[in-house]
């Protein structure tokens, strides 16, 4: 049952050191405010799971919160590299980072299996790629009906899913729309879930194509207006493309990165 609380309280209860945490949102509705709170709470040894690590995980990795990254595309969309991710993989800074990588189709199907209560999912994919050799959660499987050789990916059941949505009602029912990515699957696959929202309203007016997550599959709901910035929330905020462009220079340099985190995360509330 969802509890409406402040963000620090929800994350302190939901996320422990060493947890596997999925913070989803495909370019849209990325839960940046929650990530900053995890940095402030000093979480360590997290396994971070996300299809597109994006700037949000660049920050968590650079801040030393992560021991492992599970992902499928780790760039700054339209801009270039995630330099904190690269520094961790290439030079072990600020610490070594284990990686487990998939294609988007593979990783999203791992969430689907997790949300479905199955041990694995099946897809056409990976055949002939080197990903098969470097990722243990990919294995060949033979169809019992046709004999066709396909690919299995193991289920993903994160300890915690964290997402951002447009709104919730006072019971904690959540509504999100626009590009909806893998948020529903991540929440349903996870053991615990935290949802930040742009606003809490009395009544959730229907929106065409919206995803609805009932209060009884969510543990914490926190009202955090602008909590997706520099990502966006359709109908509420715009994507700050300049921030993504400027992040390239900030993230290239360890000192500039640390200064940014100090000024914008640790000394901010």
């Amino acid at each position: 049952m969802a509890r409406l609380t402040a963000l620090p309280e929800a994350l302190a209860a939901a996320v422990r050191d060493g947890d596997a945490v999925a913070m989803e949102g495909f370019t849209h509705l990325i839960p940046h405010a929650a990530a900053h709170e995890l940095i402030r709470q000093g979480r360590r040894d997290l396994t971070l799971i996300r299809m597109t690590p994006d700037v949000i995980y660049d920050q968590l990795i650079g801040a030393g919160c992560a021991a492992k990254l599970v992902f499928s595309w780790g760039g700054n969309p339209g801009v270039g590299s995630l330099h904190r991710l690269r520094d961790a993989v290439e030079h072990g800074w600020p610490r070594d980072l284990a990686i487990e990588e998939h294609s988007h189709a593979g990783l999203v199907n791992r969430y689907v299996a997790g949300a479905s209560g199955l041990p694995f999912a099946v897809l056409r994919g990976y055949a002939g790629t080197d990903l098969v050799d470097v990722t243990d959660s990919i294995a060949p499987i033979t169809c019992p009906f046709t004999g066709e050789r396909l690919t299995a990916v193991s289920a993903l059941n994160p300890d915690v899913a964290v997402i951002h949505a447009q709104r919730a009602d006072r019971e904690g029912n959540v509504q999100l729309w626009g590009i909806v990515g893998a948020q529903k699957e991540a929440v349903l696959a996870a053991r615990r879930s935290v949802v930040t929202v742009e606003e809490v309203v009395d009544v959730l007016a229907p929106v065409p194509g919206a995803v609805f997550l009932p209060h009884w599959v969510i543990d914490w709901v926190c009202e955090v207006p602008g909590g997706a910035a520099p990502s966006y929330a359709a109908g509420y905020t715009e994507r700050d493309n300049d921030f993504y462009r400027d992040w390239d220079a900030v993230s290239r340099d360890r000192d500039a990165f640390r200064a940014w985190i100090d000024a914008n995360v640790l000394e901010a509330e």
């Binding site: 370019t27 849209h28 339209g78 969430y111 590009i179 893998a182 359709a234 994507r239 493309n241």
Partner: peptide, 19 residues
């Protein structure tokens, strides 16, 4: 700029989940 910019969703015939 990104494959998730708002203009892609606003001008689409439909928007579906990643799965």
């Amino acid at each position: 700029l990104s494959i998730g910019d708002g203009s892609l969703a606003e001008t689409a015939d439909t928007v579906v989940s990643s799965a």
